[in-house]
């Protein structure tokens, strides 16, 4: 890895140069009623609207690789036959300008199941292979617990990673492409004082963590506590609304629906992000539902994130971004749920 120092004034130039491509980045979307700014990822054409000082976005950058709704194939229907067309729904490469470590790691995790396992999915891969990622450091919110999940630093999965040192950025250059793109900008080698600032930044980040999830032995504890009454309590709270799955950077479960056009000359097969909390997640043709209670569905969500994925890939599917907890109207959040399963004190009780 190559480390360089980039004056902040140079970033606009990099942005302008990269504007030959579509740029997606964090933008200010509005304020909540307490006056706190809310951010989300969107197409950015004006450098001044790019908010690299964002806290967290409400939604992850997931939709740019895994759209909530996506056409898998279309069919041209003739008298008694048909023809199938497949399109991966991407026309040109794009830049993700300003991803926090948790979101970079989220993509790395999705890669494992969507590209690295049997039946790699081309819809995801086509977008993933056409991204240029610029990471940015952050100060965690009180609800962030990426440290617990080991996702507070990104080791791979980006081209550039910026750490804000006040007047300048500490830049990690990961790809040759990024190195090329930085040519012509006034880069310098980090001085000892930059190292100090970088370490200070690291200390400040560490000091900001409040929420914590104890992951030791978690897969076994989840098995032991499979019948725990605690699940029922959480289930009783859950609205089965699917908000958590939408805001989550790693939820990828989906449903497929086929429709015929009104003129019957074409048909379409679409996937739609589904949530394991939705009432019909495990319903089969004929109506039988394997998980009719909200408690069993909520439990399944935790089993998938914190047990099943760990078994398959030796890491959790959760990156600790805290979005699900912040968005949940019923105030269900990962640190509290895991603590209650472990018979520990919940953060919200402190």
């Amino acid at each position: 890895m190559l480390f360089k120092i980039l004056p902040k004034s140079e970033l606009a130039g990099l942005f302008a140069a990269l504007s030959e491509n579509d740029i997606i980045g964090p933008v200010h979307k509005g304020d909540n009623r307490a006056g706190t700014p809310l951010f989300d990822f969107a197409r950015v054409t004006d450098f001044d609207t790019l908010r690299l000082d964002f806290t967290s976005t409400v939604h992850s950058a997931k939709r740019f690789v895994l759209p909530y709704r996506e056409t898998l194939s279309t069919f041209r229907i003739t008298k008694d036959s048909w023809e199938k067309q497949v399109d991966f729904n991407i026309e040109r490469p794009f830049v993700l300008f300003g991803l926090h470590a948790c979101d970079i790691n989220a993509l790395n995790k999705l890669d494992k199941v969507l590209m690295g396992s049997v039946y790699p999915t081309p819809y995801y891969a086509a977008k993933r292979r056409n991204m240029f990622i610029i990471g940015i450091d952050c100060i965690p919110l009180s609800s962030c617990f990426c440290r617990s999940m080991g996702t507070d630093t990104a080791l791979t999965g980006f081209d550039l990673f910026l750490t804000d040192l006040g007047e300048r950025y500490f830049v990690e250059i990961r790809s040759a492409k990024a190195f090329q793109f930085l040519k012509g900008l006034s880069l310098s080698d980090p001085a000892d004082s930059d190292h100090d600032l970088y370490l200070d930044k690291n200390t400040a980040m560490n000091a900001a963590f409040v929420a914590h999830v104890e992951t030791s032995d978690l897969t076994k504890i989840l098995d032991l506590e499979f019948e725990s009454p605690v699940w029922k309590d959480w289930g009783a709270r859950c609205l089965s609304c699917g908000t958590c799955a939408n805001v989550c950077p790693t939820c990828y479960c989906y449903g497929v629906e086929e429709t015929v056009a009104l003129d019957l000359s074409s048909a379409r097969k679409e996937k739609q992000l589904h949530s394991c909390n939705l009432v019909d997640f495990a319903e089969v043709a004929g109506g039988h539902n394997f998980r009719p209670e909200s408690a069993s569905r909520l439990k399944y969500r935790y089993y998938h994130k914190h047990r099943g994925f760990v078994e398959a890939f030796e890491e959790s599917l959760c990156v600790g971004c805290g979005r699900c907890g912040r968005s949940c109207l019923a105030e269900i959040n990962v640190p509290d749920v895991i603590a209650s399963i472990r018979h520990e004190e919940m953060v919200s009780d402190r």
């Binding site: 989300d40 409400v58 609205l239 609304c241 949530s275």
Partner: peptide, 20 residues
């Protein structure tokens, strides 16, 4: 079978409760 939240969040709206 699911509620409007599912579609609302897929449209990446700000939750109305956040807006008061």
């Amino acid at each position: 079978k699911y509620p409007v939240c599912m579609e609302c969040q897929a449209n990446e709206n700000i939750c109305l409760f956040d807006l008061g």
